[in-house]
Amino acid sequence: MRRRSSLPVTFLVPTLAILLVLSMVPTLYAIVIALQNRELSAPGYSWVWFSNFADLFTDRRFLNAVWVSVKWEIVTVVATMVVAIGLGVLMFEVASPRLRNFYCLLFIIPVLLPRVSAAFVWKFAYHPLYGIATYPYRLVTGGLIFDPLSKPGTALFAVASVDVWQWGLFFAVIVLKLLETLPPQPIEAARLDHAKRWQIHAYVTLPMLKAPLVSLMFVKMIESLRSFDLIYVMTRGGPGVVTETLDMYAFSQGFIESGKVSYASAMAVLMMIATVITFTMLWKRVQA
């Protein structure tokens, strides 16, 4: 009965066709634009083939953006996982079921906020004179000024803290739910062997959750690629180019500074190739 139905074809084919068109047209067109020398201000263009790509590799601002993006990726992914596992384990250990539900609800709130909202909330909070987050510093030092978003040493971390605020707290909820799905016997056994609480988690529960935790990290790595909103609102890539990630630089080349759409597209194409290759390989390993 099931076998002979036309349902799989009528349900799948239109959707997949539309998805293919919607994703392939822009992808292929991005490559076409990258091989030309289009600019926003001028209507004409010609084919320049790979010269945009060649220019990129001698562009020090581009190389800086690659490095900033890598740093952003590492800082946000590691910090998110540390916060998530730490808070998840703490909730599992010391919170009663009712308290757990309450914390879970609180911890989901930041991730639901639009990135633009989260960025503004913290931009106010980090304001050197009137911010609520810098107030304790002003209080302790008797009115000294600390401006985390405009200091080269702290700007990237200040923006990253917002990302971790959103995702780390949310993932803590998921880590707790994962811990709750574990069978209680191995934990009991470890307890009978006089294992300490932290030892139980380090050697028993977390290794048991290795596969879902790795998947979680994979999801965070993908979501960390979307740093643009936070950086655009909070620092615009500044001070200087300290927080200028690849998408921020591509945007400013294509739209703010020079309107070099083709040059920006070449950057986007390189990003696309790098992420698709990396994540396809990682995904196959996660699945295996």
Binding site: Y29, L225, F228, G254, S265, A268, M271, M272, T275, F279
Partner: peptide, 13 residues
Amino acid sequence: FLPPVAVAIPLMV
């Protein structure tokens, strides 16, 4: 996985 910039630039054109 597709970077949003990589979709947005060609679509704009």
